[in-house]
Design a protein around this nucleic acid. Structure first.
Lengths: 329, 329
DNA sequence: CACCTGCATGTAATCGCTTGCATGGCGAAA
DNA sequence: TTTCGCCATGCAAGCGATTACATGCAGGTG
């Protein structure tokens, strides 16, 4: 375990000079730099993060906070973040949060205690004000997705829900399908609201009447999709020409019920999901594809840039989706 | 940002005493403890991790290393690890590794540089010797799954591949199905080897002849499953009564091909997968369920226990699987 | 009453690095 | 040649905890 002092002894330079060489800050002679670097290599010297943190207030660490939800594509986001972090030579301190108390503690620990240089958080159900108060400007925060409130507080990376949903609906309209059933998420869910709006816009853009559309609220789960589909069928209402579920899980749940009832897709009706998960791929479900890795990557880069960049106005990055067309439409 | 000294000033005690109270080590008067704790609360004092690390060699951090593979259930493992870490008040430093060089660097950084107190790693393709050399006994290491070499070096948490596969095969045998096709992973893959062995054992236990079984090697991917299935069908060979794929992806790939050819499952043949992923659930595929969260949880706990426990012999924990029976059989 | 013991608390060194300020040497200007 | 300024480097003070070791005060003992 060579320390900075060992390098000093070997080279005859002071700790200051060694540190300068290693941190690419001030100026040092090219010759000096070489001597130091050689010694560092020879001694196999590695600066201790703990000491660096204490003295320099730099952790070389990016904090990441996820909701404790069983959500397959969070790994994708995480990988994107990891890629960006690796490029910047940062480590990742990851935390799932179970409840608000835990989240607050995590935020304090990552920010105030100085465990990280920046934080990326996803869909947190804490208000911007609360977060800001906790973090207290100690480190920059980037949000992936956000709540209904306009986020003028932090940098945000979000999915283009509106256009994503619009593209799905347009895809149907182009096929001459207008009798559509929308299986949405909770009414107060921001993603759901935006997607609903996108669907509406697609109708308007096409000059069609959106009021013919049936809207059924569900909860983004497989079971929710099954239930709503079952209810709809049992209520004796007619089958729509197409169902656009606001995520794949609900789509697959509905699909399951339809199949059980003997309906075929896309024979009897078309079906579109959102997220384009692996399951959608395997089920041949047309779905709005969301580039999760990109989102993570962009969010992390935004955060990393904020670390030494002067404060600027919060920016919002909207990631575009694309439609993965498969057998279900 | 109150520091230890602020607490000293407020209470009149020395840093040593404050530290003792906070770390529950030596003895302090109950009265003193209360005074200190009150002051800590009032000042809203939080020990700085960096300082603690430097002085105390404790990081309160668990290192986690994953292969850079797009594998949905790694999140599950991670959540399990996170749960255990939270219970122990530890943070998670997560890293995906892309190549061996990156992995080595990560190991050095987590272990030698003192960024973590223990490491949990998954399916790493570095030999135990190499890892041991890098980590150099600075922190305990727990492996989830392992390579073919017997791991007498580290604690290991592994899936009960043998019994898992055996239960799947027995399930089929119990239905009177003996004409089985096994879709395995790469021949040198340890999981695959064990699963193959389990299948064989099931036949032997039932007093049946394993040599009637057809074995086709694939690569654990959806596409691999499709290809092998296609080849098999096109080669004009007869359809087996059942296919047991060594993971869900291959099973779903094969299923896709069979459906396209007009075969029905379980009408024409039965199908079983391994892993019991979400996709298997949605596809109604019978599958060997692996409790990924438990694995993560147990591995993390093993690692955490090793942090202050004296070195003992490496232990191996085998996590049992269960069979999720669905429509495909 | 002097002395020893033991326990609660204090003293101060230490962990390994960063960084503001001091310093010294050397070339350019006078 | 002397003086000034600049630039590469050194000095030393932190950063905020932990922890051996020292200390002092209590009560118990002979």
């Amino acid at each position: 375990m060579a320390t900075l002092y060992d390098v000093c002894k070997k080279t005859g330079f002071s700790t200051a000079t060694i540190s300068r060489v290693l941190n690419r800050k001030d100026v040092v002679t090219e010759k000096t730099r070489q001597i130091v670097l050689d010694a560092v290599k020879e001694l196999n010297y590695r600066p201790k993060p703990a000491a660096r943190m204490l003295a320099g207030q730099k952790t070389d660490t990016l904090g990441v906070i996820f909701p404790e939800i069983d959500n397959g594509f969070y790994v994708q986001v995480l990988r994107g973040i990891d890629n960006a972090a690796k490029e910047a030579g940062l480590h990742l301190l990851v935390s799932f949060y179970h409840d608000k108390a835990g989240l607050k503690e995590t935020l304090l620990s990552l920010a105030l205690d100085g465990r990280s240089d920046a934080i990326v958080m996803i869909n947190i159900d804490l208000s911007d004000r609360q977060i800001k108060k906790l973090v207290n400007d100690t480190v920059p925060v980037v949000m992936i997705g956000h709540s209904a409130e306009t986020s003028a507080t932090f940098d945000v990376v979000e999915i283009d829900n509106t256009n994503g949903a619009a593209s799905a609906v347009t895809h149907l309209l182009n096929k001459g399908i207008e009798n559509i059933l929308l299986l949405t998420g909770p009414a107060d869910n921001f993603d759901s609201i935006q997607r609903l709006n996108g669907a509406k816009l697609a109708f308007e853009d096409a000059g069609k009447d959106f009021s013919t559309v049936t809207i059924i609220e569900s909860n983004f789960t497989y079971e929710g999709g099954m239930e709503q589909m079952t209810d709809h069928l049992e209520s004796g209402k007619s089958l729509p020409e197409a169902i656009f579920a606001f995520n794949d899980r609900m789509a697959l749940g509905a699909l399951e019920v339809l199949k059980a009832k003997g309906y075929t897709v896309p024979g009897d009706l078309a079906m579109i999901g959102f997220d384009d998960t692996e399951s959608a791929l395997y089920a041949g479900l047309t779905s709005v594809q969301v580039p999760m890795m990109d989102i993570g990557y962009e969010a992390a880069n935004l955060a990393i840039r904020r670390i030494d960049a002067q404060k600027g106005n919060p920016s919002t990055l909207t990631i575009t989706t694309s439609l993965s067309v498969r057998n279900s439409t």
